[in-house]
Structures are given as C-alpha cells and as structure tokens.
C-alpha cells in the first residue's frame, strides 16, 4: 500500500520535473543582455586575474557561501564527534596490519598523495580543484595510512590547532578587508598577472587555508568514525 502511494507521488514529481526541464534547453545560451555568468567570467579574467573562474566565484564573488560551507564541515565534524562521543576508550582503527606489500605501498604513496593534495589547493586558482578537493585528497592520504597500519595514530591536538588556525586565517582575511575600509572578504592584496602562481590577491591564500582546514576536519571525521567500534576481536 505504501509503495503504491509513493509510486503515485513519484509519478507526479516525475511528470512535473520532466515538464519543467524539457522546456529548459540543453547546451544553449539562455541569457541575453547582462547576466551573472558573463559578468563573472569577465571580472574573473580582467579584474581579479584569476584563471579559474569557478575558483573566483567560490572564493570571491560568493566567498560568503564558502565561509558558510567551511562552517558546515566544521560543525558536521563537531556534531559527529558529539553524536559518537563515549567516555570509554576507543577501539583501534583497524584490527591488524595490512600485508607488507600494502604497507610498503602506503608508505611510498603517502608523501606523493599529500603533495598531490597540496598541489591541487595551491593551484586552485589556475587549474581545476582547490581547497576542498585538496583537503579531501590529503584526508584520503591519511586514510590510506590508517587503513594500512593498526597502530597509526592521528593527534587530535594537532588537528584542532590546524583546523582552528586555518579557520581563523579565513575569517581574519575577511575581517581585514573590513578593517581596511573595504567590504568583508574583499581583496586587498596586489592581483598580479593572470596565470602566474602569485596572482589573484587573497584568493589563493584563502584556498590554502580552506585546504588545510578541510584536510584536518575530514581526517578528524574519518579518525573518529574508524575508532568507533562496537566489538573487539578476541
């Protein structure tokens, strides 16, 4: 009975979605006159000198969203810790070491993965990627180590420091703009020439801070969840 109701509901939803989206032309230029897309593309190239306009939107035009997004991740990590919190000592992340081969491979790949993450967030304004992606890659690197070694520990203290300092950097960069008489999150550094590494003013700096923050947060989340064990192997 419930299935039937749900299916009818879904059919209605499907009808309307298809109806609406069949009228939105795929792959056509819908906007005439001045519009957000052309404005962003133009300003990103000419005013901000940021090569990747997605980055300039994420960090500058809509930087406030990104601040919120970072906060969402931060609060998710906090809420997750609060939900899973136990006073007892935690179990171990993995029960036994992986085989020698996986361990050596993890060893060898760990540094390049970290470097890849760093590369992605340092070049966030030049190539695809940025703080979130880079942070995720770094967290994945730590995940690799956690999977390979049963005694690999991540220090919560260090994570807290990195996380907080990176967040503070982001917020203070925003507030600095305000203090300097501009608006919140407005660029106050020289913008350089497009496609140089040192270009885009505060945008790369913010993205680097985001990268550190996301990396630390996701590592913390993974560590908390991995250590959450119901049973212990005898």
């Amino acid at each position: 009975m419930k299935k039937v109701i749900v299916l009818i509901l879904l059919a209605v939803v499907a009808y309307y979605l298809v109806d609406v989206f069949s009228q939105i032309k795929f792959g056509e230029n819908r906007f005439q006159g001045e519009n957000v897309r052309d404005f962003y593309l133009d300003k990103s190239k000419n005013d901000l000198h940021v090569s990747n306009s997605v980055t300039s939107i994420v960090v500058n035009f809509r930087g406030f969203d990104t601040l919120g997004e970072v906060t969402v991740l931060f609060l998710a990590a906090t809420a997750l810790g609060s939900v899973l919190y136990r006073r007892k000592a935690h179990g171990e992340a993995v029960l036994f070491n992986a085989s020698t081969i996986v361990r050596s491979g993890a060893h060898l790949l760990f540094a390049p993965i970290l470097l890849l993450g760093a590369y992605v967030f340092i070049h966030g304004h030049l190539s695809p990627g940025g703080g979130f992606q880079g942070g995720t890659i770094i967290a994945t690197g730590f995940l690799l180590m956690l999977l390979a070694y049963h005694d690999y520990k991540v220090s919560h203290g260090v994570l807290t420091w990195v996380e907080s300092l990176a967040g503070l950097t982001f917020a203070s960069l925003g507030l600095t703009g305000l203090i300097l008489g501009k608006t919140f999150l407005e660029n106050f550094l020289p913008i350089g020439t497009i496609n140089d590494l040192f270009s885009g003013g505060i945008i790369p700096i913010i993205y680097i801070a985001v990268g550190f923050k996301v990396g630390a947060e996701l590592t913390g989340v993974l560590y908390t969840m991995l250590n959450e064990k119901e049973y212990k192997k005898s």
């Binding site: 993965i113 890849l116 695809p128 990627g129 890659i137 994945t140």
Partner: peptide, 8 residues
C-alpha cells in the same frame, strides 16, 4: 589533474 586524482 582530474585523471590523476581519480586514479589515486
């Protein structure tokens, strides 16, 4: 870059 990340 995407392929690189994807592979890893």
């Amino acid at each position: 870059d995407v392929a690189l990340v994807y592979g890893v």
